[in-house]
Measured scan of single mutants.
Amino acid sequence: EDEVKKIVKRLIENGVDDEQIKEIVKRQGVDERIVDKVLKELK
């Protein structure tokens, strides 16, 4: 989960929008619920 957080944070800093972040992270095989949780925490 910490790995996911790092990735998502980097994507947000690069101006990637939420939908794209979800797609990218899902392609890495991460559960969507984890992605949603991380996005909420970082906003």
Rank of each mutant, 00 (worst) to 15 (best):
Glu3Cys: 08
Ile12Gln: 12
Arg10Pro: 04
Val4Arg: 01
Asp2Pro: 07
Lys5Trp: 13
Gln20Lys: 13
Val38Ala: 05
Glu19Gln: 12
Val8Trp: 01
Glu1Gln: 08
Lys22His: 05
Gln20Met: 14
Arg27Glu: 08
Val35Arg: 01
Val16Asn: 07
Glu19Phe: 10
Glu13Phe: 09
Gly29Cys: 03
Lys40Tyr: 13
Lys43Cys: 04
Ile12Glu: 02
Arg27Met: 13
Lys40Asp: 08
Asp18Ser: 10
Ile7Met: 14
Val38Met: 08
Ile34Trp: 07
Asp18Val: 15
Gly29Ile: 02
Ile24Asp: 02
Ile34Gln: 04
Lys9His: 09
Glu1Gly: 05
Lys43His: 13
Arg33Gln: 12
Lys5Ala: 07
Lys5Arg: 15
Gln28Glu: 08
Asp31Gln: 06
Val35Leu: 12
Arg27Trp: 07
Leu39Arg: 03
Leu11Trp: 02
Ile7Asn: 04
Val25Trp: 05
Ile34His: 04
Leu42Gln: 03
Gln20Phe: 07
Lys26Thr: 14
Lys22Leu: 11
Lys37Trp: 08
Arg10Asn: 14
Asp31Val: 04
Ile7Val: 08
Ile21Val: 05
Glu1His: 12
Val8Phe: 02
Arg27Leu: 13
Glu32His: 08
Lys6Glu: 14
Ile12Asn: 02
Asp2Ser: 10
Lys26Trp: 05
Asp36Gly: 05
Asp17Cys: 10
Gln20Val: 11
Asp17Leu: 10
Val35His: 01
Val35Gln: 00
Asn14Pro: 00
Gln20Pro: 01
Glu13Ile: 08
Lys22Ser: 03
Glu19Ile: 10
Lys22Gly: 02
Val30Met: 11
Gly15Ala: 03
Val38Asp: 00
Gln20Tyr: 08
Ile34Phe: 06
Ile24Val: 06
Asp31Leu: 07
Val30Ala: 07
Arg33His: 13
Asp31Phe: 04
Glu13Gln: 12
Glu1Tyr: 15
Val25His: 02
Asp18Pro: 14
Leu11Ala: 02
Arg10Lys: 14
Lys5Met: 11
Lys6Thr: 10
Leu42Tyr: 05
Glu41Thr: 06
Arg27Asp: 07
Lys5Pro: 01
Lys9Met: 13
Glu32Ala: 12
Val35Met: 04
Val8Ile: 15
Val16Met: 15
Glu23Thr: 10
Val30His: 13
Val38Asn: 01
Val30Lys: 04
Val25Glu: 01
Asp17Phe: 06
Val16Gly: 02
Leu39Met: 08
Asp36Thr: 10
Val25Arg: 00
Glu3Val: 10
